[in-house]
Amino acid sequence: MATLEDFIQAFQYDWMQRTVLAAVLIGVICSLIGVFIILRGMVFIGEAIAHSAFAGAALALLLGISDPLLLVLFFGISTALGIGYINKDEKVEDDVIVGIFFASFMGLAIFFIGLLPSYTSNVQAILFGRILLITKRNVNLLILFTLITTVSIFLLKKEFFMISFDKELAIASGLPVTAMNYFFLVLIALAIDVSIFAIGAILVFAMLVIPAATAYQLTYDFNKMIVLSITFGVFSSLGGLFFSFIYDWPSGSVIVLLATFLFVVSYILSPKRKLVSTVFLLFKRNFKHVPEISPLPHFHGENQGIEEFKEHLREIQKGDEKN
């Protein structure tokens, strides 16, 4: 076990600075993309892309490719585009097809791993993540992809927001929804592919979903949701790095567990659930004043007719306009 001092000492080394930077960027890229994944209910699609990236990594191991990143990118992006193509008729309920993608890539990945002569520590790294072993090339790509993602989401924020709110309305308004959809799927793939070696194939999609879901509990304001999501994401991944360094725990699981902890807390505190205020109310009786209802003056009889009522309303309205 390393000590806190070791941890602080390590900051003077290049590799440590690189790792910290990676942790921060992973927090940013995943939780930013995650906001839109949550709002659009695309959690399952995220997971399918993550598993295809896993299959790519496993194949790279089998072929003895030293840096599996390119193969991972290839698998991730083609799956993203494939799902986009299947979904292009704007039928969102394609759970079944996405589910089959998801399961078959998992099968493929396990197949590749099964063919490996021995179960190496590399497999462990892909499955569970080793943020401390992240390569320089991976960090460079991470910088690049985080930039691309942040800038394009910043520039297209209002359009992505509208598509998340009501896709059909966005199409009817003349927004290029299909193109933006493909683009967004590719962004998901990029985020997953550069994070997979730090968080692990099994858990990477949790990082896309949990910080954003946590933020979703806490606010009705879209911009605040983005800021909160990124904050939670960065906090979790830095925390994961810390525990991974000190206790040599698998970074991916620590990151995800930290993120889950934040989620549980915010779920309890959420103004949308009112769990806390409900508990308070149990201790506090409140009496509400119920006003008496006065009858409408103009209506007697049965079929006085809607015309008369409308006339009456128009009178009221005229009064309103004078005021």
Partner: peptide, 30 residues
């Protein structure tokens, strides 16, 4: 276009003015 009333998520993080402003998005452009 004003669609027929349908269920939206009660928790969607948008305020009234955000949704109204969506009408301007296509006009303003990407």
């Amino acid at each position: 276009y004003m669609p027929q009333l349908k269920g939206y998520s009660k928790e969607f993080p948008a305020k009234v003015k955000d949704v109204v402003s969506m009408g301007r998005y296509p006009i303003r452009g990407l």
